[in-house]
Design a protein around this nucleic acid. Sequence first.
DNA 1: ATCCCTCGAATTGCATACAAATATTGTCTG
DNA 2: CAGACAATATTTGTATGCAATTCGAGGGAT
Lengths: 233, 233
Amino acid sequence: MAQKGRDGGGRSQAVHRALKRAILDQALSPGTKLPEDSIGERLGVSRTLVREALVRLSEEGLVDLRPNKGAVVARPTLEEGRNLFLTRMALERLVVETLSGRLMQEQIDALSTHIRAEEAAKTEHAASIRLAGEFHTLLAQMTHNASLIRYVNELVARSSLILALYGRPHSSECAVSEHQDLLDKLVAGKTDEAVTLMRHHLDSITTRALLPTDDGRSIKDVLSAYAAAEGLA
Amino acid sequence: MAQKGRDGGGRSQAVHRALKRAILDQALSPGTKLPEDSIGERLGVSRTLVREALVRLSEEGLVDLRPNKGAVVARPTLEEGRNLFLTRMALERLVVETLSGRLMQEQIDALSTHIRAEEAAKTEHAASIRLAGEFHTLLAQMTHNASLIRYVNELVARSSLILALYGRPHSSECAVSEHQDLLDKLVAGKTDEAVTLMRHHLDSITTRALLPTDDGRSIKDVLSAYAAAEGLA
DNA sequence: ATCCCTCGAATTGCATACAAATATTGTCTG
DNA sequence: CAGACAATATTTGTATGCAATTCGAGGGAT
């Protein structure tokens, strides 16, 4: 099924997804240059499409688009990070309030399954981060509030950048048990306690700010895997 | 070549701003088709730049980008509208909490001045809507929280679309006095009352949902003014 | 050795060309 | 006259080419 697979509506979107995944997996770490040529060459598309993808990524805040100087993976400052988590809190609070006491059994199962997956992947650093984020986006998804979903997605994505830059290398970013506790409160409909739990949860992420890590692999090397995943080149 | 004026960092941005203003002023009403070449022709740029601008607008939720079928000004459903105001409430609550009791005299003056401008423009329908929105973005601005600012801006912008579609034609969308009351509470540091006021304020906007208005002017006609404002064409 | 200038290579900004897809018009048939 | 179909005209999707800008290396001059 290597051919078109599900293309999701255009190759530019595919490029966007490929780059986004690469960034979120920290295969392209903050500050990495993103030259249109190399990316296009590696992904088998023209600069035009890469450009479009970069514009989208910059609107999402994952990429910084310096005029005439090229795009780089965004490098949020520590303060931007703090503010971002403040905003995240405001939105996830709405998520929790919307969902508390209203979860269907089917949704509860989905969340439980996800939490078990998180526990299973506890040792794998990369997957662990991704799954932790996905728990939050999964919750947001269940509100069926389109703008809320979109913003939580964006903020969770950018949180990865923050953690990549300032997070402790080995601490599991989200304690899995906190996710379980939150789910329990949501099911029980204890809204206030759930909100408090969410606040502490995000606070505890925020207060783990530390040293940056830097490795400089070549873009082309790193992108080949993601190209395949999107059915490109 | 016409004056470059203040280009703000690239002609694609200029196109983006021109279209955005046209949409927010309801000169391009929801559902209007946005063909790349007519716009480019009218604005004196190539399709490439128009396309880039449309991608940005679609990321902001102002434009709907149907693959192979062209872009149209977004036409949010009534339910999307309600959800949007829910999200807005969550974020503007954070704005209020952040600002309450912390406004500098200079900022208070700026807000007061703005409110007076709103009163002055009460009769002019178009300007009135724009100013009402700008009050909220002005508040957000003062938090110095980049992501918060961006999202409030986006949501306020999209609120214009909602009101264009479902709002009563003649009701002043935001009662100016409510803005003044809110400011008073913020200055006095009465956070809870300010939050409550903001909630009522947004609620009262939400509960004014009614009939759509449609006028179908040609894109080219309508864009000429905006072209000049951005130093295009 | 350090600074500065100049020139060339690399990269972005933008327009244009062409292919693919969709909408439209006109015509024919029942 | 309605509906189907074919030919055509628009409009979008993508690649490529050229001008403009930035980056980096080399080569004096101090």
